[in-house]
Structure formats: structure tokens, C-alpha cells
Design a protein around this nucleic acid. Sequence first.
DNA 1: CATGGGATTGACT
DNA 2: GTCAATCCCATGC
Length: 204
Amino acid sequence: MKALGPDFYDRPVLEVARELIGCTVEHRGAAGVIVETEAYHESEPACHAFVGLTPRTRTLFGLPGRAYVYRSYGVHALLNAVCEPEGVGAAVLIRALEPVTGLDAMRVRRSPAARRGRIGRAPGDHELCSGPGKLTQALGISLGENEGDLASGSVRIGARAAAWLEPNVLEGARIGITRAVDLRWRFCVAGNPHVSRPRPVPGR
DNA sequence: CATGGGATTGACT
DNA sequence: GTCAATCCCATGC
């Protein structure tokens, strides 16, 4: 896998969010192709960086090409790629992957038995990484990966493979936020079963 | 120092 | 559709 360097991320965050579709995320031998992203920028209130530089947002304002991993709802770790020049708070949230490598390990980490005593059925392959909290769990990505280099750290993102050079990308409104809901900064692969719900409606 | 909300998920009604 | 789990940290007193 050919890892993407800082220059790839040192650009407008919307551009990076669109171009990360089809790229590959890898961690500890498990990997998947990005099929859904969302862009966040300090200029709009849904972005953590909107409040300015704090201990929490330090990574967001740091070097492009680093991972920004934070805890959501006290439960899930969410993976972002820091974008734009140092000093600008912006990142792309990785929301869903199509699993490629290490499916067995993903199934184990995503199985009910691997989670606090809950019972339930095993997830299907299309449910392994179909959400931002799911994919970090499937790949074993935790808060310790925050600020890691996406080109040389434990979590890496590689350029599009041959089969993913020209993905059919749909745009839509971002999910699960309460502010700046009008911005259509969500990007998904059309018709891909690994995209999280709700899927964006084509042609809106 | 206390409080409250959040870029979610899965189980249950 | 409803709801709890669970924790970091911003905010306000």
C-alpha cells in the first residue's frame, strides 16, 4: 500500500473528503476501502475546532496528515484525518469502510462476545465497518492513535487502488449533528452496501 | 468544582 | 421509534 503524505491533506478539506473515497485505511493488518466521509471545518459550528484551540482540539489545529481520534458519546472512538495547513482546524471524518483484509479479526472485535457481556447476533460483513464507531472497533483503533502520522504511524491511509480510481460519489447532508445541518459535506460511494444509514438520496 | 452535551450504536417496544 | 451506555472536556458558578 502506497501511503498518502502530508501534501495530500494540506488542501481544502472538502477536496480531501471527496478524494479520500476509494483510499485504504489500514491498522494492525486489518484494512478497508473508504466508502463514506464527512468534512469538518473551523468556520462552521458542527466542527470541534469551531470553539478555538483547546486541549481537545489541539490535534485538529496541528499538522495535516495526522489522525484525530476522539471519543464520541462516551463510548466510541471516531477516526478523522487532519487537513489544511497547520493552524487551520479542519478534518475529514472516516464514516465507513468496505472491508478488504483481516475480516476474521474484524468479526472477532465486532462480535457481541467481544463487547461487555451483551448478547446478540454476529454482524454480517456489510455491518463490520458501516459506521464511524464500527470501523474503529473493527480495526482496533483507539484513542491512543490520536495525533499519529497517517503516512508512517500505526494507522495508515493509502492511495486509491486500481479498481477505485473513479468512484461514483454521492453528496448529502452530514449525519448525527445538530448544527450547520444544511451543509452537504457528506460523501458516499453510490450503491455501496457498506455505507452507513441513512444513505443519501441520489439527485437531490 | 458541577453540570451537560455530543461527528454513535445496539437492544428493545 | 425509543432509550441507555459512558467519558472527555467546555462552560459557568
